[in-house]
Design a protein around this nucleic acid. Sequence first.
DNA 1: TTATTAATTTAGACAAATCTAAAAATAGAA
DNA 2: TTCTATTTTTAGATTTGTCTAAATTAATAA
Lengths: 224, 224
Amino acid sequence: MYQPTATEENYLKAIYHLSNTGIKSVNTSSIATSMETTAASVTDMLRKLSDKEWINYEKYKGVKITRKGEKVALGIIRKHRLWEVFLTNILEFEWEEVHHMAEELEHVSSEELIKRLDKFLGHPKFDPHGDPIPDQTGKMESHDKFTLSAGEAGEKYTLTGVTDHSTLFLKHLRKYGLLPGVTVSIAEIMDYDKSMLVKVSKDKFHLSLEVSKNILIKKYVGSK
Amino acid sequence: MYQPTATEENYLKAIYHLSNTGIKSVNTSSIATSMETTAASVTDMLRKLSDKEWINYEKYKGVKITRKGEKVALGIIRKHRLWEVFLTNILEFEWEEVHHMAEELEHVSSEELIKRLDKFLGHPKFDPHGDPIPDQTGKMESHDKFTLSAGEAGEKYTLTGVTDHSTLFLKHLRKYGLLPGVTVSIAEIMDYDKSMLVKVSKDKFHLSLEVSKNILIKKYVGSK
DNA sequence: TTATTAATTTAGACAAATCTAAAAATAGAA
DNA sequence: TTCTATTTTTAGATTTGTCTAAATTAATAA
């Protein structure tokens, strides 16, 4: 119907993420915070998005994304994550470097381009941070909701993703070799502060609860 | 100094091309034509570009691009042509399909991205249409100015590029297998209309002057 | 050289996206 | 329930890039 502008795409992406990962209702101020703008700007944009039927919006009542809006958001998320795979796997950027570039590349409009990029990359199912990549119809594998902080001493896990995507956190994890696919064994959990002693390949080190809460895992299922 | 917007980049690119490939002076209306906009819009933009010292501009006197402006333009041309190489060589698009996508990709800002893309592609010197790719400092190999229409009967040439970049023309050439790098022998030139009978691999066919004028060549220099 | 035509610039307006400051509506506490 | 604090919306401006129509300058032809 309408062709969204890059700004509209960014709002829809933010609203989609808030709808799914956030706990609270999607209101004007939460959108303003995540878009780093003012509540007044958000109100203006909500009216536009509503006119175009990408969201349902009533004054003072918050926002709900429509099927149409969700389709737009998933399309952008697909592009973003495919470009992230390209940047890390092909151009050999580190996982903490790619987010900003992908934010620009995701707005390049050609559908055929993204179809061929997907094929060239081998139809990846997850991006470098372990987030699932939607297919052309918007379907994707669901993320493991398990965090390392909920793991048990003596157990072995595979790192599948992160919940904090900040550069700072990702750089921190790479210092320990904590990357998607890596095996993590919990040697001990400290009663006092819930920090844990973990083993990654041959290294042993402590992780604070702050860190383990932001690491997604699944149960380890054998080496081959 | 200033960071050009995508629109400013497009104007500078157009002015650069008009300055180099065009015959006439770069005036308001020629820019308006090439940007597909109105003279009034061009005048507005010329003032802005002049304020930022990317061009020298005096009312009613036409435009001259500055060194600074040239640097911006060459940066964009470099990005455009490298993305075109990526799209044809890696994603296997045809040469007539890539221009529009490259127009979007060229405005993605990261210098590091383009540096790595260049490396990944093997530091190509020419894009799929035979146009030279500037290096990081703006230097590039000069285009062969020789067109096939100036060739001689009985001689052998290598196709190096085109002067008409339209989809229609490029599609037309591909039908004959006329692509950069291909060897073209002129069998005969017709006195009447200057059309020529040429041989490309095992095929022989006629080319009108209209077509041969838009094909760039250099002398053939042996098979190995 | 003067008159007419063509090119260019100015004036004023518009759309998108943003902002600050003020007004209105809702939510929470007493 | 009524008052206060918070959230949200409105009002009015700003910036970027665009437009049409009118005015101005330059070019050209008689």
